[in-house]
Amino acid sequence: MILNKNYILTSKIIGLIFALCLIFFSAENSYSIIIFILVMLSIGIPHGSVDHIIAFINPKTRIFKNKLSFFTIYLLLIFINILIWILSPYLGLFTFLVISCYHFGETQVIGFNDTKNKFLNFVVGANILLSLFLNNIFELQIILSEFTLFSLVDLSQFDKTFFLLVSIAILMISIVQFKIKKKVPLYAEMSVLYLIFYHTDILTSFSLYFGFSHSLPMLIMEYKEMKEKNFFSFYLKTLPFTILAIVFAIILYYFNNDLLTADNLILFTFIVISSLTLPHVFIMKDFVENK
């Protein structure tokens, strides 16, 4: 059932049920790290672990001559991203946000519109990230304590509802400007995402969005494109690079305190994610074209 033609909707409904369970049982605060780790290891990282295969699937959009050039450019982008974070954390954060906005938006509009309108993709992704951050802004100030321009802003006079209102208002104002085939369902789905962002902490919000609204639909889409015998054999193919990604994170963590961020595990995790995301975005841009 999960792999029928409505697989995108199915995976999102799984996420919604999961989210509602967390909200009703008020479990998110105590289990957010476990949820984050489980989602990232089982869905988040695996959805990017077959980039080396899907980069060569569509001959029309293929931009790499061979595997060597693919891995060289892929690793180079990861290296450049880490270098940016080391040299200028502000630039690293900015790069991550811009790239993520486009990438999240691009996959979010699938099923509601084609992905050709790059500006729409960016705006939709920006809305999602903005809502994720605004609805958890007090937590975000703690996580980004090293970014004093943001973390020292006094927001104590505002409550969470204010930020939800701002994010919804921005969503409404921005989304009506675009010609979208299924504008209302897209808006409705994003409203539900905002509900989850408001009621769960930042790590759980990100896990639920990233896992079930972004990664799982992409993972299933990749499985269908690769035409594997069954999902299990496809999933096995994601394992080598998932393990490599974890090893990469451990190595990076070894140098963490000297180079990146001292004792801020969540920020460090986002740096790792941003490093893995940068090359992945370019691969997915071609992969989702016309989907």
Binding site: L164, M172, V176, Y194
Partner: peptide, 30 residues
């Protein structure tokens, strides 16, 4: 919180039934 999320969706029902006015109704509800 409930109204912020649901009122725009109620407004949207008009646009779904008629196919017009979504932009104006969204602005007004904001």
């Amino acid at each position: 919180v409930d109204w912020i999320l649901t009122v725009p969706l109620m407004v949207v029902e008009f646009a779904l039934l008629t196919g017009v006015g979504m932009s104006k109704l969204f602005w007004l509800s904001v």
